[in-house]
Design a protein around this nucleic acid. Structure first.
Lengths: 212, 212
DNA sequence: TTTCATCTACCGGTTTTCCGGTATATTCGC
DNA sequence: GCGAATATACCGGAAAACCGGTAGATGAAA
């Protein structure tokens, strides 16, 4: 196979041992060319600016940045590059955040070589992919995610949205053709229902419950 | 196979035609028993209160509630029940929200019968599962998700967090042993960097960027 | 060493939010 | 038809946020 037809793969991991292990695992694959290995986020970003990379195996823990932000930067710089997170972090929130930031998949480091190859292929075909353990983590949401949100009336939801858009009570009142005093009342009811004492905490809760 | 050993499955969809189609597709499966079909969320919730359901195929569009909230309620009522979303909605945000609310998987309605069976099995084994098209949607995040967030200093991130916890300027100042006036300044810088005019909009943006 | 970013701190004033109440009209389910 | 929930509206006062400035201290990079 011509060198140029091979899949170009990069590795970013602060642990040199891990890099070596991955290289050993991948170097005998016909279709893959390891374009580079990096122990820092900035090192890789520099490389990416002048080289094509089809897929990158990215650790979360890095010396100069965190993998979450780095993933986002990679996708901005080169949207066609697949980011496959490869990490020890098994927190559901981190996995979801990684997806939100544009990752094509997530593997825990205990995944087998076979699993890794499967995931690489699936990611390159444009689909998200996870190692088995990660699939189980995602399917098992914590209690906090499911905690009941106060039930809001239609008007309250409406006003909540407008508040989150940065509108003031007066502005909302005008937009809805209501008395500012009425909007005030709804606002207060929102604070009560969420058991918070100002809009900052209100919006945070609402956002975490996916209400915005 | 004994009736009691079969997997109990329920269908919730406001479209009777879809229910019939799914029933036809599943009725000849040895391992599955269709425990009930419902066209409303409340109908199913009532059933779930007194019957075991291993897995439910859940539509998003429902007459009396939306599938997102319903999914959350189902998982609260019966955490062991797998929820497989089966919908026409192909928006990434809805898929992610559904996962956040405890779904074990997501299929678009154009998925094949074979895909459906695979997903049911994978979900029952405790792993998340998606139809092929959904995997592609997840792997393709929108530009909005990746838009660059303002570069925040350590102090600013710290204060942003405290604000989102509902703390006041005075409270934050005390907690960090700073002058309230200093905290004020940081707060103003945050509003400027995010180009918003109050904390409500600030927290919304920060939450959407996963900063909280 | 100089420059740049950040952190710190202050003044004075305006706007908005927050909180303690109270109260009537409407709408929806039983 | 009758509650219960919801939506509407008001008062007054205290607290907090927001805004437009300015400016010294610190620390790291060039």
């Amino acid at each position: 196979m011509l060198e140029n037809d091979k899949i170009t793969l990069a590795i970013v991991d602060d642990h040199p041992v891990v890099i070596e292990g991955l290289q050993k695992l991948l170097e005998n694959k016909e279709v893959i060319r390891i374009a580079g290995s990096f122990t820092s986020g900035n090192g890789f970003l520099g490389f990416l600016r002048s080289n094509r990379v089809d897929i990158v195996l990215l650790d979360i823990t890095l010396p100069d940045a965190n993998g979450l932000d780095l993933c986002k930067e990679i996708k901005q710089l080169s949207p066609s590059t697949c980011v496959l997170a490869l990490s020890n972090h098994s927190e559901r929130s981190i996995i979801m955040q990684m997806l939100q930031n544009g990752a094509s998949g997530y593997l825990l480091k205990n995944a087998s070589g076979e699993e890794l190859m499967n995931c690489i292929n699936e990611a390159l075909s444009g689909q998200v992919t996870f190692s088995r353990e990660v699939k189980e983590i995602i399917a098992r949401p914590g209690v906090s995610e499911l905690k009941q949100l106060p039930q809001l009336t239609r008007r309250e939801k409406e006003i909540l949205h407008l508040i989150s858009d940065g509108k003031t009570t007066a502005g909302i009142a005008e937009e809805l053709s209501l008395s500012p005093l009425t909007v005030e009342t709804h606002r207060r009811n929102l604070l009560q229902k969420f058991e918070v004492k100002n809009v900052a905490a209100l919006i945070k809760m609402a956002a975490q419950q996916g209400l915005l």
